[in-house]
Amino acid sequence: MAVKVGNDIVISDNKELSNIESTDDTTQTSINNAIVGIDNKLIIKDATGTAVKTIYGAQSV
């Protein structure tokens, strides 16, 4: 059975998220940690080899 907020389905019978208009800090952190956990990343290093920035991203499954 779908989950609704008001008249809007937010979780469908097929377990799809829909009509999500934003995320709160806790949710953002959870999503961020999930992406970091995949550990698909691009590291930017300076000439000494010191990482100055790490960019995490999704990967194809």
């Binding site: 691009l42 590291i43 930017i44 290093k45 300076d46 000439a47 000494t48 080899g49 010191t50 990482a51 100055v52």
Partner: peptide, 22 residues
Amino acid sequence: NPRSFPVYYNSSNEIQAMTETD
């Protein structure tokens, strides 16, 4: 400045700044 020089992909597929010698 270790960030002065153009970047390239190193052998680990990381983006790295060239050294002065590079």
